[in-house]
Nucleic acid binder design. Structure first.
Lengths: 333, 333
DNA sequence: GTATATAATTTAAGCGCTTAAGCAATTTTT
DNA sequence: AAAAATTGCTTAAGCGCTTAAATTATATAC
């Protein structure tokens, strides 16, 4: 293993000087710096992160902590990692995955990792009510940023989708295109998300004085089958809605299916708009619009906040809502 | 930071003994072991991985190296990580993500990481012909396992989908259900995969003496639009195929779309079978069958091989083909 | 009962790096 | 011209752990 000693010898300096050059401390003369850098290049030296970690107390590592199984819809995990990766790439930090499999024990693993000082910071996904993991991170004083949140997390650093804005965008977009009777469909999901969606949806409908019936926005379905039968019921009435705000991938697909079944042509008889865009939406029949584009942004913003926090732990917390962005396709016209 | 010194003091031993207990070396008496373990529990001690790494030369870390952008179809990246995570969880190893964003520089990053001894082993995805990353891993002698392969990689450790078996399963399944005229649709994809699919497909068709026309298995499409126009042409002829083997998500969706356009009812007039199952297939109209289930298996097998290799670097290489598994839904009957 | 093997534990060096403190040479201030 | 500050570099300690070698205690052999 080429070490800092080899570089020091090759450059004719002490190891301290090499270290100062690597860490860009600015107190080494240009000539010496050049000599050291040449040696580093010649010997193809790379600092060992674990040695740095031991000496400095920083691991230069951040962890994404998340049960993966959950991320089938709502958020594309891959995009999210990409977003995080893009930001970290430009920093000195590396990315750990902490894929917690079994929900029940996920906090135990995290606790061990935290005690073992395995990471300098954490990006926490799929936050639940009374999330043990948050307590642990606080107790072990590991800086963290949430992606998504519950009402309990208001004071913490988080990045979340702007649900209010998204609902507004969806409803307004539909209304602008002449669709007055709008219903919302989805399944029971993340802590609080469904609730907030319903709340905002009803609010916006009444703000815009749009026609409304309670059945058009009932509780979210427990299963796909339930959702389909709800949809059939809602859409086959005489005064049925002319637009569906489908807030999950399954809801989008089921809406298309039921529309076909009932011979409702999209977008002529029925408009459909999705929530988080999924790359498959563009290949559906017809291609489906959506109001959120890219979980990548959630990831990259979370990473940015975390990096700032690692630089200045005393920093004020930051709450960011990612704005919706209309991805317009043929399902609304 | 609670260190091994604190444990040694609490247990009344030397730090070496504590270390031997932690590493289950077997040379510590049961009584002392119990005392040390109690101290560890009492003080909630966790070994610092970076210190271990420095002292032992092992990082107990493995990296998944992959451009993420690619994994939109063919493989579910999330499932794959899950598979890897499941195996690593039971080991002492932790999981690094090495999401290479920019393809052009991805090997530079890997080279730096390898030189910096950041990981003990690598799981390499999306292997290309003349993949620089493989050279680097060899040169830096970092054990690695491929997920997917090209013909160049035959001697290396890899896990790949059994394309031969998959094609056979798809064709035979369709034939068994009375579909004789089968075509294959997909887009240009991974290094060699498309080629192997075409080759195997033609082979199996001729082995089974099924009717065949060259147009039914042309080169893979360059774009979704091209695929659609190909499909329209193929399926609207008088003697058109009665079944489609759709080897990507886009191919599945486009097939459904074109079938609807041409008023071909699935599965009555046309059967459809996909390649790698995607959770959305079950919500399509009709739900679509597939021949591969779970990228998780690829991940977990790769992780297992890598762990074995880390234990015994002299080990013979291992090539594993993951068998197809029919996921039967309503698109074939 | 002494020699010898075995088991249990400790000593001590060192892994590759950071960083406070020290020193020498040079520059600035008074 | 002496004192003070600045610049550039080195010395040396130490981060938390592993592990070969040394030491001590205990069991077994003759």
């Amino acid at each position: 293993m080429t070490s800092i000693y080899d570089i020091a010898k090759a450059a004719g300096t002490s190891i301290a000087t090499v270290s100062y050059v690597i860490n860009k401390s600015g107190r080494v003369s240009p000539e010496t710096t050049a000599r050291v850098e040449k040696a580093i290049r010649d010997l193809k030296y790379e600092p060992k992160s674990f040695a740095r970690a031991l000496a400095s107390g920083q691991t230069f590592t951040i962890s994404i902590v998340s049960p993966l199984t959950v991320y089938k819809n709502q958020i594309s995990f891959t995009q999210l990692i990409n977003g995080v990766g893009e930001v970290l790439e430009k920093s000195d930090y590396r990315l750990f995955m902490h894929p917690t499999l079994d929900r029940a024990n996920s906090w135990l693993e995290l606790e061990a990792a935290a005690r073992g000082h395995q990471m300098d910071g954490v990006i926490l996904l799929h936050v639940q009510l009374q999330d043990k993991r948050i307590e642990i991170l606080k107790k072990e004083s590991i800086p963290f940023v949430l992606i998504g949140r519950t009402e309990e997390n208001e004071g913490l650093d988080y990045v979340d989708a702007d649900i209010h804005g998204a609902v507004r965008l969806a409803v307004d977009h539909l209304a602008e295109h002449g669709y007055q009777k709008i219903c919302m469909v989805g399944e029971k999901g993340n802590a609080g998300v469904s609730y907030r969606l319903i709340e905002q949806f009803k609010k916006r409908i009444s703000e815009k004085n749009l026609p409304f019936q309670p059945a058009w926005c009932s509780n979210m379905a427990e299963s796909s089958e339930e959702m389909i039968s709800d949809l059939v019921e809602i859409l086959s009435g005489s005064d049925h809605p002319t637009a569906v705000f489908a807030v999950s991938d399954i809801a989008v697909l089921n809406t298309l299916k039921v529309a076909r079944q009932l011979h409702l042509q999209i977008p002529r008889d029925l408009a459909v708009i999705g929530y988080a865009d999924n790359y498959i939406y563009q290949y559906l029949d017809p291609p489906v619009s959506a109001v959120f584009n890219g979980a990548g942004e959630l990831g990259s913003i979370a990473a940015q906040i975390l990096l700032k926090k690692l630089l200045d732990p005393e920093r004020q917390t930051e709450q960011i809502l990612v704005s919706p962005e209309l991805v317009s396709r043929q399902s609304v016209a």
